[in-house]
Amino acid sequence: MQHLRLAERILLRKFGSDYYAYNAKSDTLYELDNEAFYFLLSCDGSEREADREILDFLISEGILEVNSEKKENVYVEQSEPSLRHFLISVTHSCNLKCQHCYILQNTSHIDETTFKKAIDEFYSIGGLKLLISGGEPLLHPKIFTLLEHARRYPFRIVLMTNGYLLNDDRIDKITELVDEVQISLDGFEGHRTLRNAGWEKPIDVIKSLSGSVDVSVATMVTKYNINEFERMSRVLESLNVYRWSIDVPVTEKDMLPPPDSIKEVLQNYGFGKRSYPSIQGYACGTHYCEMDPEGNIVKCGFFEEPCGNIRDGLIKCWENLKRTYIWRLDELECSCQYVDECRGGCRYRALMYCGDILGCDPVMCNIYGVKQCCQ
Rank of each mutant, 00 (worst) to 15 (best):
H3M: 05
R9I: 10
I10F: 04
L12I: 07
G16K: 11
D18T: 14
D18G: 01
N23S: 11
K25T: 10
T28G: 00
E31R: 14
L32T: 00
F39K: 08
E49A: 15
L55A: 04
I59T: 01
I59A: 05
V66A: 12
E72H: 12
Y75A: 04
V76Q: 04
S79L: 13
E80W: 09
L83N: 09
F86G: 02
T91M: 03
C98W: 11
Q99H: 11
I103C: 12
L104G: 15
E112S: 07
E112G: 02
T114N: 04
K116P: 02
A118H: 00
E121K: 08
S124Y: 08
I125K: 01
L139R: 06
P154L: 07
R156C: 11
I157W: 05
N162F: 03
D169M: 08
V178W: 00
S184Q: 05
L185E: 01
E189V: 13
H191D: 05
L194G: 00
S210L: 06
V213I: 12
S238D: 15
I246E: 03
M255A: 07
P259S: 07
Q267T: 15
G270T: 06
G270K: 01
G272A: 07
S278K: 04
I279M: 03
G285T: 08
E290F: 01
M291H: 01
K299A: 11
I310M: 03
R311Y: 08
D312P: 00
R323Y: 06
I326N: 07
E331W: 00
L332C: 05
D340L: 12
R343T: 07
Y348R: 02
